[in-house]
Design a protein around this nucleic acid. Structure first.
Lengths: 341, 341
DNA sequence: AAAATTTACGTAAACGATTAAGTTAACTGT
DNA sequence: ACAGTTAACTTAATCGTTTACGTAAATTTT
């Protein structure tokens, strides 16, 4: 559609395309006069640089990719928000890919991206990701920053939260609230965050001398109905827990529904803590005690680290790793005295 | 870093780059033998096409952009999910931009995108968008599909839900539950969805002969604290409403908190309906009556419409417009008999 | 068997921007 | 005044693919 290019500007002003190009990026080789003229004409004709021509030539796409398991989760939504904010502000574009917890998707996406479509990647691995060769290979070509769910044996920036401590703290909180039979609900045994949280959980169980047979880890799945059944069975079993520590936000609904259906009172009969960033935690009945992760901050930090590396043309940026602490928000779902709100 | 390109493949096989290129896209001009050889070598050397070279040459980026106000909202999250699903499946990439309800951002992003970075755009306008010239101009260059918040006077595909009816239905439901003083909480007076919902609201008020002075529209803002105060004042005012219809999900928290703080019982003293896709609606206290929009479906439909247009090189695709109905989920926040769950 | 067509390639010019290297002309210092 | 420098450009190659067009051999047609 006869787009206005650098060539057209050059013809109109009787200069070379080189001059236009340099004028547009404010090169010192160009006089102020010509710069003015170029800028003016560019504005007049509404010149917009062709991103692909530029990317091809400079081998820089000004684009980053974000790989997350899903977006229908407050944590990832907020993190994406943080990432996009920093990226846009620095003139970068953000490609979004959802792996839906499928390792195959992760592999396929990374492979395609290594063609040069992006300058770098920010990712949180899938729950299935138990081998890391594909990520290793990829990271030799392009900078990768991990957030939350990291790839352990890779020497790059990892933006995480204090999962171990939170696992410990949440468990300790449950114990101090009187729980003796605590179940940790997990979703994967390969995820870094899961093992961290579990280790914190286990340590608390030991430190406080709880019966290790009463305190176990139960693995949930991706399907809400399945999880609902699982939790119901758990709560109907012979050794019913009096404390639940859920490691993913989406289990909240299933826990509340299951307990409600079985007429098990939270927090009287079972106390609940959830790793969750849901705004609605505060208006649940009872309001939910949560570990809230600094999702937005983590996203911003990850993006900042990546863009810094891009600026410096460096691949490895392990020193940019950061642990941003989460917060334990104590609410009614773990209160000792019975109350509704 | 010495990437493997078509040129390299050509040298290795002693053919021209044209042959490689054609072989890779399975052209009939190339013999099966050579195709095999090319494919094999490509796999062996892990050839990945350079997206930008291809985009530049073909003037096609295989990329779409999604402009949404925010992602920390169940509706937009789910819609994005649907869009990305369709896009990925068809080999398209998805750029995400959040406007944060700022018209200026919307303008700036669209301007940059018109440089050719994407083949088309799927968007939901900001709450500030009250003039549409920038969108008009843009849509002359690239295909645009709207979802949810549409640009009224533009002849293109619009994927919406039955906002008018839902406004009517929700209001009717409140009236039938006994409400006589209903307030609609809005966030903008320019948004298509808001006017649709308000019109439905107003029609129901008229149809059922409610006092129009007792039933009004109150405009909320972007700030949660401000909204909380606003709702508290509303509930403390002389003419306290006995029914609230909230048009955006995020107001739920403020409504519940305000009522809780003022010890106003939902649903006994005030009944609440919310346009919301939050999964937690069902576990709130009381569980929340919602209008849930078919967010994921809308996203998928919007993406499908756009990709269809891209295939046909068409700009206008008004005939792809679609209205996918929302559902009214009646729960305890509007029940006549008092109950907690 | 000559002409026409098809098959299977190769040549080279794009796409639009960037940039190393070259070219003037003007200016600087001694 | 003359070598050396600087300012302000231009030329042309380049990024990696795609594709219109050219071509030679093989095949088919008549």
């Amino acid at each position: 559609m006869g787009n206005v290019t650098i060539k057209l500007l050059a013809e109109r002003l009787n200069v070379s395309t080189a001059t236009i190009s340099k004028a547009l990026c404010d090169s010192h080789e160009i006089s102020e006069q010509t710069k003015q003229k170029v800028l003016e004409l560019a504005r007049e004709l509404n010149y917009i640089p062709n991103a692909y021509a530029s990317s091809l030539r400079r081998n820089r796409s000004q684009t980053i990719a974000v790989l997350i398991p899903e977006v229908a989760d407050s944590f990832f939504s907020l993190a994406l928000n943080g990432i996009e904010e920093v990226a846009l502000q620095r003139g970068y574009h953000t490609l979004i890919y959802m792996t839906h917890e499928k390792l195959e998707r992760e592999k396929a996406i990374l492979k395609e991206l290594s063609g040069g479509r992006v300058d770098g990647v920010i990712m949180s691995v899938t729950a299935e990701t138990d081998s890391f060769e594909h990520i290793h290979n990829f990271s030799r070509q392009l900078p990768v920053v991990f957030f939350d769910r990291v790839c352990p044996d890779l020497n790059t920036a990892k933006i995480t939260t204090n999962d171990f401590e939170c696992g410990y703290l949440a468990t300790k909180h449950l114990i101090e609230a009187g729980c003796r039979k605590i179940v940790l609900l997990a979703v994967s045994n390969s995820l870094s965050i899961m093992s961290e949280r579990s280790m914190g959980f286990n340590k608390a169980i030991k430190d406080f001398d709880l019966n290790e047979n009463d305190c176990r880890i139960v693995y949930c799945g991706e399907d809400a109905v399945y999880n609902y059944q699982l939790i119901k069975e758990l709560m109907q079993g012979t050794n019913r827990p009096d404390g639940i520590l859920a490691t993913v936000e989406k289990l909240t609904t299933e826990i509340y529904l299951a307990c409600n259906h079985l007429s098990i009172n939270i927090p009287r009969q079972v106390k609940v803590v959830c790793f969750s960033n849901q705004a609605s935690a505060v208006i649940l009945n009872p309001s939910l005690t949560t570990i809230t992760q600094p999702a937005f901050e983590m996203g911003k930090t990850a993006a900042t680290a990546l863009l810094k590396a891009l600026k410096n043309n460096s691949l490895v940026l392990a020193e940019e790793s950061m642990v941003i602490p989460s917060a334990l928000n104590i609410r009614s779902s773990t209160s000792v005295a019975v109350q509704t709100y």
